[in-house]
Design a protein around this nucleic acid. Structure first.
Lengths: 148, 148
DNA sequence: ATTAATGCAAATTCTTTGCACTAAA
DNA sequence: TTTAGTGCAAAGAATTTGCATTAAT
């Protein structure tokens, strides 16, 4: 599991919420931890031949609900999971190697309040993903596009 | 089609790009126009019993490529299509009724340049969706959550 | 004991592909 | 004519559901 998350904390939280701490759930958690930074449901399922696919999905959903994991949308539309730093954050996704970095310096708040004033929307949340190339990949092949 | 887009412009662009302007494509275009602001592939397909599902999808992909349509990601993860205002813009999506509003006042540029300096990422693009309640729905049921 | 959680396989949903056929150019 | 585009039906992916069974409490 390494640095990503403290499993016992997750287990604690699971108990607190009244969810049973079962063997399959622990297995999913452990496998997710082994996957490192980010992974797909598929990858996880393959690592867990003894756990049913349905359970993998059910557990993932649970963990997302619990804010343990969060979903990352890749630019190609595919979905992956990754350990969530609790609290509001966004992702810097490398289009080349898929590396994901969090960032919290989210200045969208200003934008949001402006939107609230300018429109009749009540803003409840937002999702921001920034795509590009990580340092390594940027060196390998120079970027083509500019800022959006 | 109404205000969304000028179909003849789309057709023009299609020809310019060397794509054939076929009856099924026009049908999809017309149906999309009739759907109004936004729609799913499914909805579109249902309106077009004479056009194969595959063609609907192929045409949608084409139109997205051509920047005629863009994809909207709903908070529940489902995908819809909507007429694209050309150029950079984002979406204000109502969690209740699904209404989508564009907004272009995108101050993410500052954030992006900051990210560029602070990390070793080369930013190539970003995707921002703001969720909340539109005026109508906000009145019906008061919002629960605050800004992110 | 109770009842939440599981595994399996079947069912869904959404989208793509293969291929013989049709129609733009 | 030539070849892009189509329809169909089948194949795929990704995820969910139904239900009898298992295991946590």
């Amino acid at each position: 599991m390494a640095k990503h998350t403290n499993l016992s904390t997750v287990i604690q939280r699971m108990e607190d919420r009244g969810y049973r701490v079962t063997a399959p759930r622990l297995a999913v958690l452990a496998a997710a931890a082994d996957c490192g930074d980010q992974f797909s449901a598929e990858e996880l399922d393959q690592r867990l031949p003894r756990v049913g696919r349905a359970t993998v999905f059910r557990t993932l959903k649970l963990l997302v609900e619990m804010d343990v994991l969060c979903r990352v949308l890749l630019d190609d539309g595919s979905l992956r999971y990754r350990w969530s730093r609790r609290g509001h954050h966004h992702h810097l996704v490398c289009n080349e190697c898929g590396a994901v970095q969090d960032f919290t310096a989210c200045d969208v708040a200003d934008l949001v309040s402006e939107l609230t004033h300018r429109t009749n929307f009540t803003v409840e949340g937002h999702w921001l993903e920034v795509y590009g190339r990580c340092g390594t990949c940027a060196h390998a092949a120079p970027a083509l596009a500019a800022l959006p």
